[in-house]
Design a protein around this nucleic acid. Structure first.
Lengths: 189, 189
DNA sequence: CGCCATAATGTTAGCCACTAACATTATGGA
DNA sequence: TCCATAATGTTAGTGGCTAACATTATGGCG
């Protein structure tokens, strides 16, 4: 209490403790084998408290607040491109701009998700907001809703596949992995 | 018992009863609002019996045995195409060949899935086998594993998006919807 | 037709994710 | 220091799902 530096509020501290405890337990003994009660105990709180911070167990891993960056990047792509290509190039640009220092934490999370079958669906569902955001951006710029839906889904799938590849690679940079993934689907366009 | 025609075995009858009861309840009151116990009761069996037929509630909707057809169709596409294009054209061909009479049941299922947020992820996860089959086919014909993974994921995402669109359209044919979806991602290739 | 191995189903008990309603304690600013 | 309010705890319950064991039904065989 004698520390004059901004001390993190209790809420921030509990959140950090839960995240750290969760990640470590998931890594040590697997996602399925780890109980929410266990995570809570390791973080010094109750099971109920966990659910006050995360709506579900899987949300400890999936929080991605990347939507605004992505949609902005897509908006900047030339409007005369086909929606699919436009979305792909936007995502490419957005991730190229991501600060490298942030990637270790992302890698920890993605690595767990990539290696837990039951989480693959969860990851996909968690992209729902991002997907919606992309669709709206594309439609706002003149694409038909149906076309936008397919384009968004397909490009996001490539992105997730790229993330999963990268998570297990150890040496490569995130931006590179994403670029490689998008190269696969942006053929001859 | 005096009927001389092949009578369905008890196992077949129970399975049919569960599927029909499930679909109807899901349609009437929603997937989340329907309990497994409820479905079982409507089918004249116990909750336990339900789980002897389906490993999980969602599997009543997601059973797709389409993998062999798909991989065969992909295998028939020219090998000098890029993997992504090859997969897309294979899927196109496979669904074009699907007998129209089968589609009403598919529509019932997809419609429920498309309108239940928690199931969107489940659908994606359920494509896991198909995804794996596609990857293996592409790799067997010379694609790199990484490229194959991205191509399979991306093309399947477009397929699912197409299915979801179609489910709520009422008038259009399944093959048409799939073609439209694949057109979006097969740009200028 | 009746016997019986075996398939199909039922029972009970329990774990875990998650929720609701209400009670308690801690925090940090006035 | 006091106190409104944020943070956490307690209890009780629902629904999906599993395991171990008990019971009943089915249908081919003698």
């Amino acid at each position: 209490m004698t520390d004059t530096r901004q001390r993190p509020s209790k809420r921030e501290r509990t959140l950090a403790a839960l995240v750290e405890a969760g990640l470590e337990l998931f890594e040590r003994q697997g996602y399925e084998q780890t109980t929410v009660a266990e995570i809570a105990r390791a973080a010094g709180v109750t099971e109920m408290t966990f659910f006050r911070y995360f709506p579900a167990k899987e949300h400890l891993l999936l929080d991605d607040p990347y939507d605004p960056v992505l949609t902005a990047a897509i908006a900047e792509q030339p409007r005369d491109l086909q929606p699919f290509v436009r979305a792909a190039r936007g995502i490419r640009a957005a991730w190229r701009a991501l600060p490298e220092p942030e990637t270790p934490v992302i890698r920890r999370r993605v690595r767990i998700a990539a290696n837990t079958p039951s989480l693959r669906g969860a990851v996909w569902r968690s992209t729902g907001n991002t997907e919606q955001a992309i669709i709206e951006q594309l439609v706002a710029d003149g694409a038909s809703p149906d076309v936008a839906r397919v384009a968004a889904a397909s490009v996001l799938a490539a992105l997730v596949a790229g993330l999963f590849m990268w998570a297990d690679e150890e040496r490569s940079t995130l931006a590179d992995a994403i670029e490689r993934a998008l190269d696969v689907i942006e053929v001859a366009a």
